[in-house]
Design a protein around this nucleic acid. Structure first.
Length: 590
DNA sequence: AATGCCGGGGT
DNA sequence: ACCCCGGCATT
């Protein structure tokens, strides 16, 4: 079968390539990929344009490969690049950030270093519909200078070969790299990969890493002051890294410790925003914070938390160890928010296609603030802790400063990102601004990609809440229905939000019945499908509106291009399964 | 007529 | 669950 597919694919690939450049994806497609110099022929041109993201992942993944195979990966160059825009590189985009984006980014980042060949591309291309290529963001190190992120494509069958190669490369260039992949289904493979990786890592290297890390820590401190968020991410990254590498219990200054707290808080916040996590707010948060602190903040090696066994590197990598899976899970949320990003394709990178409660993704140049959702309050603080306290004391009337928190505060505030860069602007302006948003009281902040709860909450709040009402601003949950069809396997990441690249493809199936919001024909700004997608997400809240009497069960015909159009009948096998089955297209949802 | 999709059926 | 396809609604 594989073989068959392969053959088919290759043939298709070529075909597709030509097709791509053709009519189907006229403006959008080309524009999109066109911007990427590094990327060879925007092979599957058709997809990119129309589909929110579908295509992005579709295209072959040259990157990973190149990364691994890439000849002289100019470490120096890379480092330099990173240094120039550390944040950009480190801070991710959206989780959903389908690999497309990442790849792209990557491509941009190191284009100079190694232009990829189209051939490889084709090759990678092969598995699309059945198995989406999953690109994992591998956080190299937290460090800004040589922060390197790697995307490992976990394609069925690909991962394995790749691992070793990469590892080898790594060693050669003396770069530290952690492979942290959370591929539920690919876990095994993954672990094996990691293993190999580990093996490749000479002890010496680890030493190196340690020292480097320490230095980094210091540097990071500086950053913290100006960009908390980025720090956050960095921290997170570091944590991730540490989980794999035996990181020396860095001596942390009190300041840093503080930061950790804040970081934890922030993360918690973001997490709490996630519908999934929401239910058990307190517990969750607490637990998390705990682990976090442990992970990142523990100054002395006395990290007792059994969360992540990082005492022995080999341990983590050991597939048989329970830790890997666990950590993987727990990491998910963190990782997603910090997907890399390059300020260039942010616009599209903003592909916020999530199909699920995805922990808010963070944009690099975004500042995170916490806004009180209490009616008529709208207070905005820069720290989660602060806002929590504010809520606790002011609104909940909890005993003064008692740090006691039942987690309820989480419901009353939301994390908002102040985007400093264009993306935000683009999005917000672009955004057919959900009605709720306009209603939201504290309009001060453009809520580019506020957590989905944000808008809805605000709305509800203003509308129904009584000042005194103790009930938290009703939290609206997103109704999300996934199509069973064409389920891109990896997509469903149980414990945490799915932000797998692929996820973008099905993202929003708002076929959800009781969906209220019917009007607001999200202006299909095709140029930025992403934004649109997101908007929709927001709007898509259950709760508020009375279930429309007769919800036309029929899915409003999508206006976007569908597989059929994009690929044509000839390439029917390239269609998403749903399309093939004459079901609602899963790939190009709109 | 071409599409997009639902409902239903076959395996 | 996977796959097909009749048939209807839309374009």
């Amino acid at each position: 079968m594989q073989a068959r597919r392969l053959a088919k694919r290759s043939s298709l690939g070529s075909r597709r390539g030509s097709a791509a450049l053709q009519p189907p994806g006229p403006a959008p497609a080309p524009a999109r990929e066109g911007a990427l110099p590094g990327l060879p022929p925007p092979a599957p041109g058709p997809g990119p344009g129309p589909g929110p993201a579908p295509e992005s992942w579709r295209p072959p993944l040259p990157l990973p490969r190149s990364t691994g195979t890439g000849p002289p990966r100019a470490a120096g160059a890379a480092a330099a690049a990173a240094a120039s825009s550390p944040v950009l590189l480190l801070l991710g985009e959206e989780d959903e950030e389908e690999e497309g984006g990442s790849r792209r980014r990557r491509g941009l980042g190191r284009v100079q270093a190694k232009p990829r060949g189209g051939a490889e591309e084709e090759d990678d291309d092969e598995e699309d519909e059945d198995e989406e290529v999953v690109v994992e963001v591998v956080d190299g190190d937290d460090d800004d200078e040589d922060g390197e992120e790697r995307f490992v494509a976990l394609g069925p069958g690909r991962a394995l070969p790749k691992g070793p190669a990469r590892g080898a490369l790594k060693v050669g260039s003396v770069k530290r790299e952690m492979t942290f992949t959370f591929q539920p289904e690919d876990l095994k493979r993954d672990s094996s990969k990691k293993m190999s990786h580990q093996h490749l890592f000479p002890l010496a290297m680890e030493e190196d890493v340690k020292t480097a890390d320490t230095k980094k820590a210091n540097r990071v401190l500086d950053h913290e002051k100006e960009n908390t968020r980025s720090i956050c991410l960095l921290e997170q990254k570091r944590k991730v890294v540490s989980s794999n590498i035996d990181v020396p219990p860095a001596r942390k200054s009190s300041e840093e410790l503080d930061m950790d707290k804040v970081t934890a808080a922030m993360v918690l916040t973001s997490l709490s925003t996630s519908p999934l996590v929401r239910s058990p707010p307190v517990r969750q948060n607490e637990g998390l914070s705990g682990s976090w602190k442990e992970a990142g903040g523990v100054p002395s090696s006395s990290s007792s938390s059994g969360y992540w066994s990082w005492s022995a590197p080999s341990d983590q990598s050991n597939p048989s160890t329970p830790s890997p899976p666990l950590s993987a899970d727990s990491f998910k949320p963190f990782r997603s928010p910090a997907p890399p990003d390059d300020g260039i394709d942010e616009a599209e990178a903003s592909n916020l296609l999530f199909d699920e409660p995805i922990p808010r993704k963070r944009k690099n140049s975004m500042k995170v603030m916490f806004k009180c959702l209490w009616k008529n309050c709208g207070k905005v603080l820069s720290t989660a802790a602060g806002i929590q306290k504010h809520i606790r004391t002011i609104h909940l009337g909890r005993a003064g400063d008692s740090d006691y928190s039942d987690g309820e505060e989480d419901f009353y505030y939301t994390e908002i990102k102040l985007n400093t860069d264009s993306v935000a602007d683009g999005l917000s302006s672009l955004a057919p601004v959900s009605p709720s948003q306009s209603l939201a009281s504290p309009p001060t902040f453009p809520i580019p990609d506020s957590s989905r709860t944000e808008a809805p909450c605000a709305k509800t709040e203003t509308k129904l809440m009584t000042p005194l009402s103790r009930s938290a601003p009703t939290t609206l949950y997103l109704v999300h229905t996934d199509h069973a069809y064409q389920a891109t396997p990896p997509v469903t990441i149980p414990g945490s939000a799915k932000f797998t690249p692929n996820s973008s493809s099905f993202s929003i199936s708002w076929q959800s019945p009781p969906v209220t919001f019917t009007g607001i024909p999200v202006s299909p700004t095709h140029s930025h499908p992403v934004g649109t997608g997101e908007q929709r997400q927001h709007t898509h809240t259950v709760l508020s509106s009375p279930p429309r009497g007769t919800v036309s069960l029929r899915k409003p015909r999508g206006e976007g291009k569908k597989c059929r159009k994009v690929y044509g009948m000839e390439n029917r096998d390239m269609w998403c399964t749903a399309c093939r089955w004459k079901k609602a297209c899963q790939r190009f949802t709109d």
